[in-house]
Amino acid sequence: MDIDKRTLFIKQISKQLGFDYCGIAQATPLPEEARKLEAWLNKGMHGQMRYMENHFDLRVDPTKLVPGAKSVITLLYNYYPAQKQKPDVPQIAKYAYGNDYHEVIREKLNGLLAQIREKIGTVNGRGFVDSAPVLERAWAVKSGLGWVGKNGNLIHKQSGSFFFIATLITDLELQADAPFAKDYCGTCTRCIDACPTNAILPDKVIDASRCISYFTIELKEMLFPDEMQGKFDNWLFGCDVCQDVCPWNRFSKPHNEPAFNPIPEILNLSSSEWEAMTEEQFRRIFKYSPLKRAKYKGILRNLKFISTDKPTAPL
């Protein structure tokens, strides 16, 4: 099978597995991204996410992750939900409405690699889903799938930004796609203006240590900084404000993945019902959910903060 047929086969199989888009880039070091990442880390914008400091060389060179790597395959998987939460209930980021995406997409990546090996032969490759030192958005741009918006998210011109990004690094030589060369954000600053905690800075720099998602998911301390009081906009787990206001997301369409259909409690639970939930109930209801990352104590912490986050009505 020649390089063009191999490339076409992989893109066809990825579509059959449910991936919405597939792009391919040559596996080379990322010197520009390395400089940006180093500067970002030096400014402490990763907060207490110390794991971001680890394996720096692996993040910026795919050949160190997969010896002999020749191609980086980037795949986008839609998670935009057909059903949404009511605005008066504690808010959950849309990516966490259903089952844990790591498990769902990892299985599909393994299936893709298995079919590649069955059709083409011995291939060395590793799949990654937001759980390894891979600069997914950089590879998505290099493989022609979109541009990085001012909010730090990858934006696809036809479909917006509500996508999971998966990466398959392989020693298989494939036909690379042309990098995405334009930035279609223009002069729009809706995401910057709407961010409740001013985490979105100029030049596409995100101060993750100020992001609501960082506080409600990544931060393990039981108290939030006083300066964040009144700024969480009822977000219990994660935050979608910068995506919800993005004009490009008017093109978002509901996903077709049953595993991402909303857990009923996420759509319906009020603040008082969240407060009444026991740890046993939490573990049972959210056994397969991304919410388990914050754990029961973390959810209670977040709930307490947003419950006292609202200004008291005057007498």
Rank of each mutant, 00 (worst) to 15 (best):
M1S: 12
D2T: 01
D4Y: 12
Q16P: 11
L17F: 06
F19E: 13
C22P: 01
I24N: 06
I24G: 08
A25R: 00
Q26S: 14
Q26E: 15
P29E: 15
L30D: 08
E32I: 15
E33L: 12
K36Q: 10
K36T: 04
E38W: 00
L41T: 00
N42C: 00
M45W: 07
H46T: 02
M52V: 03
E53Y: 06
D57G: 01
R59I: 02
V66S: 08
A69P: 07
S71H: 02
T74A: 13
T74S: 14
L76G: 02
Y77E: 08
Y79E: 03
P81Q: 12
A82W: 14
K84T: 04
D88H: 10
V89L: 15
A93V: 06
Y97C: 01
N99H: 14
Y101C: 05
H102A: 07
H102T: 05
I105Y: 15
R106Y: 14
E107P: 08
E107S: 15
K108I: 12
N110Q: 13
G111M: 04
L112I: 05
L112S: 07
A114T: 07
R117K: 15
G121E: 12
T122P: 12
V123K: 02
F128Y: 12
V129Q: 11
D130W: 09
W139C: 03
G144D: 08
W147R: 00
W147I: 00
K150T: 00
N153H: 10
L154D: 15
I155P: 03
S159N: 10
S159M: 05
S159Q: 14
S161P: 14
F163D: 07
A166C: 10
A166Y: 02
L168R: 05
I169H: 14
I169V: 10
L172V: 10
E173Y: 02
L174E: 02
Q175T: 13
A176V: 01
A178L: 09
A181Y: 02
D183G: 01
G186A: 04
C188R: 00
R190W: 00
N198Y: 08
A199C: 11
I200T: 01
K204S: 06
V205M: 06
I206Y: 00
C211S: 09
C211Y: 11
Y214I: 12
T216L: 13
I217G: 11
F224Q: 09
P225R: 07
P225A: 13
P225E: 14
D226W: 03
M228Q: 13
M228I: 05
Q229D: 10
G230K: 02
N234C: 03
W235C: 11
F237L: 10
C246V: 00
P247L: 02
H255M: 09
P258S: 05
I263T: 04
I263P: 05
P264K: 07
I266E: 12
L267Q: 15
L267F: 07
L267V: 05
L269A: 06
E273I: 00
W274V: 01
W274A: 04
E275D: 11
E275I: 02
M277S: 07
Q281K: 12
Q281Y: 14
F282Y: 11
P290E: 02
L291M: 09
Y296K: 03
K297H: 10
I299M: 13
I306S: 10
S307M: 11
T312P: 10
